[in-house]
């Protein structure tokens, strides 16, 4: 990631790479992009059950075909068996969330694992036009936990979602909790509470 990126014409790409985790994967990917004249602008990686996945945004000099970038990344260290996927960046979003000063909510679902929990909860959220901004789920033994970040447009929507989700999850024999993210910021961080509290007009 360069803070002093040269101001030359460039094209933006979104790149994902997956492989079995081992030291040196990020080095192989970013070295390849650097040798192609590229610059990484954003990056996020995760490792799950020994498998590494990265998604990154990079700008490269104009003219590189996505297929060529993919080949070069995968050929960087053949023994790493990298699987890459590359797309040209399209700045036009397919989904624009409604403007809200509401902040995000954290939905936590916990209980005995069974097939279909994620499908049912996410299908319900999709039916309500709610986008999932962040998602974590794990089953340990028969105990299932998932944590989602969503953004209802107002407290009434949040309340309505809460009641529906509690009912859906109750049918599945599990528990759902929907709490404002500021609760978790307040309990897990040291910053002043005043930073979290919005200042509505009197009587709001």
């Amino acid at each position: 990631m360069g803070t002093n990126a040269p101001e030359v014409p460039s094209e933006e790409y979104i790149i994902t790479v997956m492989a079995k985790d081992r030291p040196g994967i990020i080095a192989a990917i970013t070295r390849t992009l650097f040798e192609m004249g590229g610059n990484v602008t954003e990056l996020s990686q995760t490792v799950m059950r020994g498998y590494f996945t990265i998604i990154l945004s990079a700008s490269l000099p104009p003219g590189w075909e996505p297929e060529e970038i993919k080949k070069r990344i995968e050929a960087a260290e053949p023994e790493m068996e990298l699987s890459a996927y590359v797309r040209r960046y399209d700045p036009v979003p397919l989904f624009v969330p409604k403007e809200t000063d509401q902040g995000a909510y954290i939905l936590t679902v916990q209980g005995k694992d069974r097939p279909g929990i994620i499908a049912q909860v996410s299908t319900y959220l999709a039916s309500q036009g709610i986008n999932i901004e962040d998602f974590y789920a794990q089953a340990v033994g028969d105990r299932f936990t998932m944590v989602l970040q969503i953004r209802p447009e107002d407290p009434w929507t949040a309340d309505h979602l809460r009641l529906d989700l509690e009912a859906i999850c109750s049918e599945l024999g599990i528990n759902a909790y929907l709490l404002h993210q500021d609760i978790f910021h307040a309990t897990s961080e040291v910053g002043a509470i005043r930073r979290l509290v919005r200042r509505p007009s009197r009587g709001d």
Binding site: T108, Y136, T145, L179, F184, T187, S188
Partner: peptide
């Protein structure tokens, strides 16, 4: 950034 562990502890 919120950590899952912190979320579960608060919950």
């Amino acid at each position: 950034m919120l950590q899952t562990e912190d979320i579960l502890m608060t919950l």
